[in-house]
Amino acid sequence: MKSIFVALSLLLIVSTIECTQRVTVGVYYETICPGCRSHFIQAIVPLKNQLGQYVNIDLVPFGNAHFYSNGPQCQHGQLECYGNAFQACSLDMNGFETAFKLVECMFRSAYFSNPEYSSKQCSQQLNLDYQQLDSCANGQKGLQLIREMANKTPNHQYVPWTTVQGRFVDGNVDLVDYICENYLNDVPACN
């Protein structure tokens, strides 16, 4: 009887270890980039839906922006800087799950190229405190968070830029298949 208990305890420990194996996926993007929009909707959302319990997705809204002493300058202008800051504020204030829904909503919005509108629309849809997020995005906290995003962004050639366990993965690669084949081939979600 004792040996059965020990065997079941070991099995539980092993299955717990397997369930905690997590792969880190870095998603480096900007909020008005059409390619980032497509990549997020077609690759990142399915990845989260299929392998969410096995991956840590790190959303980094900065992309090809540059940070100067007077603040960020974004590839698609100030609206994009606002969108990046708004999403960084949501990550900081609301946590990953809620921020992920906000990013997805803003990318799916018919007004995705105007983050001032899509951020308000999506905040209302998700019952988020738009005023608080907007104040953050337009204030010193937003600036600080964007500086953190700039520091997290690796050298890259273009956006979207996705890494798995710190290594670049081409956007044409099916992320779910790639992660299953290279990191999670023994988990049920990959079989």
Score class of each variant (00 low, 15 high):
Cys33Tyr: 04
Ala65Met: 08
Ser118Phe: 07
Lys120Arg: 15
Gly26Pro: 06
Ala65Phe: 00
Ile179Gly: 02
Val159Ala: 13
Leu59Gly: 05
Ala88Phe: 06
Leu51Glu: 09
Tyr82His: 01
Val14Gly: 03
Asn114Leu: 05
Val164Asn: 12
Gln21Asp: 14
Asn84Pro: 03
Ile32Gln: 11
Thr20Gln: 09
Ala150Leu: 05
Cys89Pro: 09
Phe107Trp: 14
Leu133Asn: 08
Leu12Phe: 04
Gly83Pro: 00
Ser118Trp: 08
Gln144His: 13
Pro160Val: 02
Gln21Glu: 14
Leu51Pro: 04
Asn151Arg: 15
Ala88Gly: 09
Gln42Lys: 12
Tyr117Asp: 12
Asn182Tyr: 10
Gly26Phe: 01
Arg147Glu: 11
Met1Val: 08
Ser118Gly: 15
Tyr68Cys: 07
Gln131Met: 13
Tyr158Cys: 07
Leu133Val: 04
Ser135Met: 01
Cys33Gly: 06
Ala150Ile: 03
Ala137Thr: 07
Asn64Ala: 01
Pro188Asp: 15
Thr16Tyr: 12
Ser135Phe: 06
Leu145Lys: 11
Asn185Thr: 05
Leu10Phe: 15
Thr98Lys: 14
Ala85Asn: 10
Thr163Cys: 06
Pro188Val: 06
Gln75Tyr: 10
Ala7Lys: 10
Asp129Ile: 07
Tyr178Phe: 13
Val176Ile: 09
Tyr28Leu: 01
Tyr29Gln: 05
Phe86Asn: 05
Gln50Trp: 02
Val60Trp: 09
Cys19Glu: 09
Met93His: 14
His156Val: 03
His156Cys: 08
Cys74Thr: 04
Tyr158Asn: 12
Asn94Ile: 10
Ile179Arg: 07
His66Thr: 02
Cys33Glu: 02
Glu80Asn: 10
Ala150Lys: 12
Val14Lys: 03
Phe40Cys: 03
Phe67Tyr: 03
Ala110Val: 10
Lys101Glu: 14
Glu97Ala: 13
Arg167Asn: 13
Gly71Ala: 00
Phe5Ser: 07
Pro72Thr: 03
Ser3Val: 00
Asp186Gly: 02
Gln42Tyr: 12
Cys33Ala: 04
Val6Gln: 05
Tyr28Gly: 00
Ser118Ile: 05
Gly63Met: 03
Trp161Glu: 03
Ala65Tyr: 00
Tyr158Trp: 14
Cys81Glu: 06
Val60Thr: 05
Phe5Gly: 06
Glu181Lys: 15
